[in-house]
Design a protein around this nucleic acid. Sequence first.
DNA 1: CCCCCGTAGTTGAAGTCTCAACATTTCTTG
DNA 2: CAAGAAATGTTGAGACTTCAACTACGGGGG
Lengths: 182, 182
Amino acid sequence: MGGMNPASDMANDMVTDTAAAQEPRWLTDEEQRTWLAYVHATTLLEDHLDRQLQRDAGMPHLYYHLLVVLSAQPQRRLRMTELAMKTKITRSRLSHAVARLEKNGWVRREDCPSDKRGQFAVLTDGGQEMLDKSAPEHVAAVRQALFDRLSPGQQKALGEIMEIVAEGLQPKEVGADLPWLR
Amino acid sequence: MGGMNPASDMANDMVTDTAAAQEPRWLTDEEQRTWLAYVHATTLLEDHLDRQLQRDAGMPHLYYHLLVVLSAQPQRRLRMTELAMKTKITRSRLSHAVARLEKNGWVRREDCPSDKRGQFAVLTDGGQEMLDKSAPEHVAAVRQALFDRLSPGQQKALGEIMEIVAEGLQPKEVGADLPWLR
DNA sequence: CCCCCGTAGTTGAAGTCTCAACATTTCTTG
DNA sequence: CAAGAAATGTTGAGACTTCAACTACGGGGG
């Protein structure tokens, strides 16, 4: 089941070069299986939730998640850039998404009084109602696909792992590795 | 940090109803954190790999993965439906993807002699070369984002968890839970 | 005060994905 | 063997995403 190993399955050769990636460290068989399982699971789960929410709420998972995040904010509102950061998407993507959600009446835009460039994305009452209505089905789907299948220990491990991975990919605060190579 | 709990944070009420989902079991705080971390990590990682591969190989991650799977097959070829199943995508999506990859010269289509409906997707020599060329950068990206940040125990746990989740979402062999409700 | 630069957010075009409909071919069953 | 049912793969339209370019505003330094 080759994957990331176009050359050989041997153990890594001695590294005789400077620093970065002269002879790449291929994935071991175990790592390949893990990576393949990761790709499969994330693909299937995202597809599954997209279909579930498209059916029950009329929008893809990301859009639903935007509403969820907004609903947890003080005035059910957030500046566009903040919302983009909290949901790990680009401002452009968010702009398109909010335009669509606005057309559906779940979200409304408001100008920011202190910064004339700024815009707030505000969850409307209709948006909150739609969330309340579709939340049970959604949480059930997440449970059935994920939590109900994992032991408590696995759930704990999953949380820790995902926090590490997310932390490592945050665009902000590079700090740690080789900032001079970027 | 509300998420899936529009009503309350109290423990689950006593269930007084028939079977499925009358009063949904909301996610606990811990489960909400885990779920949020999962969404963040998978979003960021897929975006990261899409950008890395778009830059280094001129295609998104899924397309690259299609080539990887093909390259591991006996004659570097697979029937469309088999390739779709192995990569967990729909036949339609695969059709579009292969059309694009064919235009780029990485893949070629071939008729199946034994089934006149069938088509093989075949990885071309050019496709294999491009894989060989971009594999080092890609494996490095996967390592840096995932494996290098996890302990051996976490890697093992991740593999097991993802296999469970993927297994549970396979469209085939429903079997286990409540097939009569679908 | 003005210029330059950085930030906030939007836009349009091109690429990708979903969904339903479709044409073909194969399988199944009476 | 002749339907009807199922499987294979494609197609087109509409929805979503990406990328780069763009407008508009805010914040210093001269």
